[in-house]
Design a protein around this nucleic acid. Structure first.
Length: 170
DNA sequence: CCCTGATTCGC
DNA sequence: GCGAATCAGG
């Protein structure tokens, strides 16, 4: 089950959306989950939408570095963090409760909608495990331009709750 | 010091 | 194709 280890359409969609929204790679990675900012950036490059024309460092010459693999460099740990936000349906995050109305309360099975019954204007918020029979979607009225309903949008597109800090975008 | 994106390279 | 490592700049 590599649902959380592969770039699916939905993930790429979200990636594109967030990237186009001006979000930083780290933030996108943090939201999508399971991927580091490097993965996000790498995917972005592969998709061909690298410099969206918003990055200031455009004239930074990068004369590739000589990858001289010979010396036994000490193993360094940068970001071993890897979390799957898919589980945040039942658990927000170890951060802190900022939104008062996003307290997930487990959508009743009768509310869930099967993939075949999903419409374009319906919330495509996944509930349960994709490989389990109880898997379904929210099915609520999706916000225009977004794949989720207003309720799940708050969860999916979490605000700048604990994100490091408002970085300068100079 | 922190983070940003960009590129290269190994798997 | 994917992601870590690395670089270079702000």
């Amino acid at each position: 089950m590599d649902v959380t280890s592969t770039w699916t359409d939905e993930r790429v969609e979200l990636l594109k959306k967030l990237w186009a929204s001006g979000k930083s790679a780290s933030q996108i990675a943090a939201q999508i989950g399971g991927v580091t900012r490097n993965a996000v950036i790498g995917k972005v490059h592969r998709l061909g939408l690298s410099g969206r024309g918003k990055v200031k460092s455009a004239s930074t010459s990068r004369p590739r570095r000589a990858k001289t693999e010979a010396a036994p460099a000490q193993p360094r740990a940068q970001r071993p963090i890897k979390v799957a936000p898919i589980s945040m349906v039942a658990d927000a995050e170890p951060t802190d409760v900022v939104l008062p109305s996003i307290n997930e309360v487990a959508i009743p099975p009768s509310e869930r909608v099967a993939l075949v019954d999903l419409r374009e204007s319906m919330c495509r918020w996944p509930i349960g495990d994709p490989m389990t029979s109880d898997f379904g979607f929210c099915g609520g009225g999706a916000v225009a331009g977004l794949p989720y309903c207003a309720h799940h949008c708050q969860i999916a597109y979490q605000p700048v709750a604990d994100r490091r800090r408002e970085r300068r975008a100079s």
